[in-house]
């Protein structure tokens, strides 16, 4: 029959292409590999088999003309009654020993509770970790390479990511030093002397979900979080002015030591980063 020969030709071509592509894959592999060529050959090698099988089914096999009855899903009342009797008879035998049943339940329950305890081994207690960073009074600010930062190098418009000396890379301690220039700093009450020579320090961890607040726009004195577009007003205590962040970036109290280096006067006054249930606890 001419039509069936034609159909068989397409199926044969698909399988044949697959054989050639697989041989090609071996050659490409031996020759050192190339992702795009491997991808194209895999497409043909696998696609040839797939197309061949589907065409085969569509052209030469009976499609969609078979009928089968569905058996009813619910059991007959009689079957249910017999299952229920089988269970009930056994349950009666077991339940006769009431004390043993209760003790067995108690034993399993107690074991279940005891098995929960190892969950505690998974990690440290939150304790004070969320409330403190590595900053201490008198600790110098160093940049990512560990070099102490001179206050004079933080000129107007400059932004540097700093860490407490000896803890470069400490995620919770990352801080932005921003040069505001003289006379621009509008301190929050009680923080009048936290930004010596116009150098102000804010936690770099967004108070929304903790991305590094990496973008600074000097003209408007705004810090942006690139993850969810929160913006913080650097001149007004890093108050959030846009986006989903609800709290200001905590400010690091700074001073300048005799050698001109930027030094912390203590830890952040509040927990850094995203909020949590008992953040208000002291």
């Amino acid at each position: 029959m001419s039509t069936s020969t034609k159909g068989a030709g397409a199926v044969a071509a698909a399988f044949g292409a697959s054989v050639l592509a697989s041989a090609g894959l071996a050659i490409v592999y031996i020759a050192g590999g190339s992702p795009p060529i491997e991808g194209a050959l895999l497409l043909v090698a696998l696609g040839g088999i797939g197309a061949g099988l589907v065409l085969w089914a569509k052209r030469f096999l009976p499609v969609g003309d078979d009928v089968q009855e569905r058996e009813p899903l619910p059991s007959t009342p009689d079957e249910r009654a017999r299952a229920s009797d089988s269970f009930g008879a056994g349950a009666d035998l077991v339940a006769r020993r009431r004390l043993l049943v209760r003790l067995a339940a108690a034993a399993l329950g107690a074991l279940g509770i005891a098995a929960l305890f190892p969950i505690r081994s998974l990690g440290r207690a939150p304790g004070g970790a969320l409330f403190h960073t590595r900053w201490r009074a008198g600790v110098r600010a160093v940049d990512a390479s560990g070099t102490p930062v001179q206050a004079a190098s933080i000129t107007t418009g400059t932004v540097v990511t700093v860490f407490p000396e000896g803890h470069v890379g400490a995620a919770d301690s990352q801080t932005l030093l921003i040069g505001l220039g003289p006379g621009v700093y509008r301190p929050v009450a009680g923080r009048e002397d936290w930004a010596p020579e116009g150098v102000v320090g804010y936690s770099k961890i967004c108070t929304h979900v903790g991305c590094p607040v990496g973008l600074y726009q000097p003209s408007e004195h705004l810090l942006f979080c690139p993850c969810h577009q929160s913006a913080f007003d650097v001149l007004a205590g890093a108050r959030p002015v846009a986006g989903p962040a609800a709290r200001p970036l905590p400010q690091l109290p700074l001073t300048i030591d005799a050698a001109g280096y930027v030094v912390a006067r203590g830890d952040f006054p509040e927990p850094v980063g995203p909020g949590f249930w008992d953040r208000g606890r002291d």
Binding site: A40, L43, L46, G50, V54, A57
Partner: peptide
């Protein structure tokens, strides 16, 4: 044989598209 050939064929077609994407 119909459903088996069609479904196994579909597996190879899915794998073909995924590996094609993976390489290209």
């Amino acid at each position: 044989p119909t459903y088996a050939l069609k479904s196994v064929g579909l597996f190879f077609l899915v794998a073909a598209v995924l590996t094609g994407l993976g390489g290209l």
